[in-house]
Write a protein that binds this DNA or RNA. Structure first.
Lengths: 109, 109
DNA sequence: ACAATATTTCAATCCTAATTGAATATTCGA
DNA sequence: TCGAATATTCAATTAGGATTGAAATATTGT
């Protein structure tokens, strides 16, 4: 992952609303949610939600597919993993210094 | 880690300059660097650097100690690990869905 | 074609971040 | 104490993100 991609993703995750969107979509996995469901769940005006969804999608953190007149959004788990890897590699590469990261578990919850 | 802390950290890492600062300081480990060394290495005006250092320190990603008239900055590796853990837990908790995160290595590399 | 639904784009406003030079502490060495 | 060095704070400007309602786009069902 290049630096620009990483900073775009970090910027996307720097908004509480967008972090909520991502966490919600991650919980829904491959099923995802359509825009209207997201707006209802998060109690956001549609235009505002649309703005944040666009930001997240452009950053690569979400994917979107059209289903008739609905837009279904899904979290991009590959991107998440890449971002975690980037953070691990670039921000924890010092001389041993007690730098032991937590081992990732499987995601059964 | 609470959501506000996480979003503050993500916002800090959303600037290319600040990401450079963090990566540089991580490489210097416990030794860290004083502000002047950072400014020279990154070729930044002192006031601008000071601004970004303050942002990073307030977000908890850096620590700073005074050494005479110098200010020595160090990356806060604990905070980095916490942020990676937050991202792993909150953004990779779906139903199995191929959600296998890379296992964190030791940081000798 | 028409009306209804779902979502985005547009335009305007507000708020906050980024950048810079000048001024202000604070510390060190002579 | 005085001058030099280090770094931050302040004030001003510029740029970009956040939010909202109205308008536009696209799809469905009749």
């Amino acid at each position: 992952m290049d630096k620009g991609t990483a900073t775009n993703m970090f910027e996307s995750l720097s908004s509480g609303i967008r972090l909520d969107i991502v966490r919600l979509l991650v919980r829904y996995g491959h099923e995802g949610l359509v825009a209207g469901e997201l707006a209802e769940t998060l109690e956001l005006p549609r235009t505002n939600l649309s703005f944040h969804l666009k930001t997240l999608t452009q950053a690569g953190l979400l994917s979107v597919t059209q289903e008739g007149r609905y837009q279904r959004y899904r979290a991009n788990l590959d991107a998440m993993r890449d971002l975690v890897a980037y953070l691990t590699e670039n921000c924890c590469a010092a001389e041993a210094d007690g730098c032991v990261l937590p081992v990732a578990r499987n995601c059964a919850g």
